[in-house]
Computed example of a mutant assay.
Amino acid sequence: MPQMSPLWWEVLFVTFVMTYFLFNIMIYFNKKNMLISKNLKNNKIINLTWMW
């Protein structure tokens, strides 16, 4: 029978994994929003400088 790890190791591991996934999700959505906002800013600049 394998040796059992202490409960606090398991708790630390689970909290580490959860925070890792949460931070990666937050970073992904933050970068996605930043790209959208950059595109909007670029479109506004192009529209303002365009002349007939």
Rank of each mutant, 00 (worst) to 15 (best):
M51K: 15
Y20W: 13
I45W: 04
M4H: 12
S37L: 03
M34L: 12
N39A: 09
W50M: 09
S5E: 14
Y28T: 00
K31A: 01
F13E: 13
P2A: 09
P2E: 09
L22V: 08
Y28I: 00
K44S: 12
L48F: 10
T19M: 14
Q3P: 05
E10N: 13
W9H: 10
L35S: 15
N43R: 11
K41I: 07
I46K: 11
L12S: 07
K44Y: 12
W50R: 09
F23S: 15
M26K: 08
Y28R: 03
Q3Y: 04
F23N: 12
S5N: 14
M4N: 14
M26D: 10
K31D: 04
M51D: 15
V14F: 03
I27D: 11
N33M: 09
N47R: 03
L22K: 06
V11I: 13
M51T: 14
T15D: 00
L48S: 15
V11D: 10
T49I: 12
I25R: 02
I36Q: 03
N30M: 04
K41M: 05
F16K: 01
K41W: 03
W52V: 00
N33P: 00
L35C: 14
M18V: 14
M26V: 13
N39D: 13
Q3H: 09
F13W: 11
K38L: 10
Y20R: 04
P2R: 05
M51E: 15
N24M: 05
K32R: 02
N24G: 07
N30P: 06
W8P: 09
P6H: 06
W9Y: 14
I45F: 04
L12M: 01
W9G: 04
N47M: 04
L22N: 07
S37C: 03
F23C: 15
E10V: 06
K38W: 09
F21H: 01
K44N: 12
N24V: 05
F16D: 03
I36T: 05
F23V: 15
K32I: 00
N47I: 01
V14S: 05
I25F: 08
S37M: 02
F16P: 00
I27Q: 08
F29E: 00
M4R: 12
V11Q: 06
E10I: 07
L7R: 03
N42W: 08
T15F: 05
W52M: 06
N33F: 01
N47L: 01
N33T: 11
Y28P: 02
F16E: 01
